[in-house]
Amino acid sequence: MSLRADQIERYSRHILLQDIGGKGQEKLLAGRVLIIGAGGLGAPIALYLGAAGVGTLGIADADMVDVTNLQRQVIHFTPDIGKPKVVSAAEKVRAINPDVTVHPHQEWISAENIAGFIADYDFIIDGTDNFATKFLINDACVLGNKPYSHGGILRFDGQTLTVKPHESACYRCIFSAPPPKDAIPTCSEAGVIGVLPGVIGTIQATEAIKYLLGIGDLLTGRLLTYNATSLTFREIRIQRNPKCPVCGSQPTLTELKDNSDALNVCELETT
């Protein structure tokens, strides 16, 4: 593959970078990233990965754009209200960069379909809003040996961790099981400052780009936490947990299953 004249111009700021260059840009164009969730986190992730020229982007979300999304989900515009989020997101990514092939998947992720989804991609990004799916993504990525980025936001706080299965700590090494439904407030109940997913999502997008390029140090073995009120970032070293139910020495979780609250938590709460 070699870059066309218009691509040389479009990606010139990448090409200038020592760690990217033309060869790195070609790696990005050959790269395949699946973004699960086209909401607060998925919005900046899809926009930046699209602009960067990641050649194939899968975007999975069954939801429709709602007016309450627009305070932070910057990929969706007011005229998109009522439209499937994946359709709205795909339109924006294609408008930013026609080089990108977008695969919109308008369905909820479940134990039944997730393995098939992630198999087609190099790197997976969790931009979901409920624990059942977050744990399912972790388990599927560990069992399917796919690197992935976890992200979570609430009120003024965010956290993110990159997982290289069987090499670095996974989400279950920290949190062994999902909390009971309703135990932890969601953004729709507790609120979230609109810029927060921009901070966490762009870090997750950076991880995907670094992984595709094979450069730098990924956010593995370190949970990064961010508090917007005090403007502090903290990094907590996380070792692999030998008792982890999915990647420990004697795993108890060897096949995927949906958690009891696998339906979208926010959806249930608002109906």
Binding site: G37, L41, G42, D129, F175, T186, V192, I200, C266
Partner: peptide, 12 residues
């Protein structure tokens, strides 16, 4: 000591 909290938001 580190206290680590669940943080679930991100989608809706």
């Amino acid at each position: 000591l580190e206290f680590l909290y669940f943080m679930g938001g991100g989608g809706q």
